[in-house]
Simulated assay, not measured.
Amino acid sequence: MTLAPSDVVVIGGGAIGTAVAYSLARAGRSVTLVERRGVGQEASGANVGLVTLFSGHSFDEPDPGPIYELTRASADAYLALGDEVGIDIEYERCGGVVLAESEDKLRLIRRAADGYRRHGVPVEMLDAAGVRDCEPAFHHDGIVGGAFCPLNGQLNPLLLCRALAQGARRHGVRMLLGTTVHAIACEGGRVRAVRTSAGDLACELVVNAAGAWAAEIGALAGVKVPVKPARGQIMLTEPAPRFIHRVISGAEPSARQTRRGNVIVGGTVEDVGFDKRVAAPTVTEFARGALERFPRLRGLGVIRTWAGLRPASPDHKPIIQLLDEPAGLCLATGHSRRGICYAAGTGRLVTDLLTGRAPFLALETFGLGRFANTEEGA
């Protein structure tokens, strides 16, 4: 069966794929999104939902660079997304604290904070008492200090994916859900079509946003994509009156309180292949860690535990690149546990690449070339 052609086929229906489809459609491209399950049902659905512009990733960029710019582009887009599509993604910039449990860690935080402030990013250093004042619900034993960034925030990942998908549909994106990709047809050194369980799709461009399955999709076009699955487990409590008011990072596990009062706890990154089973010992361990840090969790019932597979690149940074061979294949994967932080920015960057616009940030950070002399890039 042959389906109507599209300019672009996006493979993957998580936060990255839906953001790419939405952005490309808004730029006037005809787009088909192919997803083997449903929207946001893999890594995006197993994300705590933090959107942190200053956190542990900032230590690699003591001056704000491409990672910060990608996150900032996403965070700014989320401010307007609800009004654009009519779905409240529960995004709030509640501010966040990056914690230090040692003087060495505090020095790293201070170095990054100094660099960020030089570029106008608001970051305030805190001593132990300042951390306590910033988030009284957090148990502060062993914390020597930290930093506060008012731009850090949180959102509902599932609502984000639904909003991006709805926006994409409104701009004409064809959504093929429950559809498997069987092959990527190449001819003359470039992509020509995607063969799926729903039929063949002729196209000029393909975006591999298949998350933990990006290596499998890449292999269909003869491309090695250095991404593997990393299991992330999540726990959800019953609702309680709001007591967590800030985004806390730097101390595992991650936790946030939703608008309805439920507390989401998570943060594991486990190398177990494609095993999505919930491991009771691991859940017990991070539940214990959450109780130590947030004593008011004690007595709250656990409603649900689940797991998803994060797409982990060797350095846990995104891979975003329009390839020369085969021409027309673009990679948008490897976002690891920060896919929600990077989704809208990735959509914008991929749209720049596929429409000939000047990219809004430096591309070298996200290219495959950084793995050229490594085992993963061989």
Rank of each mutant, 00 (worst) to 15 (best):
I87L: 12
F138G: 01
A255G: 04
S313E: 12
R370T: 01
P239M: 04
A137D: 13
S74V: 04
L3S: 06
P239A: 08
T32C: 11
R288E: 12
L176P: 06
V207L: 12
H57D: 11
A251C: 11
G211R: 09
G172H: 10
S44C: 02
G356S: 03
G232V: 04
C94P: 07
D275S: 11
A43F: 10
R192C: 14
R246C: 06
R277M: 08
H245R: 15
L164W: 01
P62I: 00
G145Y: 07
V302R: 10
V191N: 01
D60G: 11
K224T: 10
L50M: 15
F294Y: 15
G178S: 13
E204Y: 08
A19M: 10
L300I: 04
P136N: 09
F366P: 01
L201N: 09
C203S: 12
A214E: 08
A80N: 11
R357F: 04
R242E: 14
L177H: 13
T355E: 07
L220T: 01
G65L: 00
Q233T: 06
G96M: 02
I87K: 10
V39P: 10
T52P: 05
K228C: 07
V263L: 12
E124R: 15
A198H: 13
R298G: 09
L361V: 02
L108R: 13
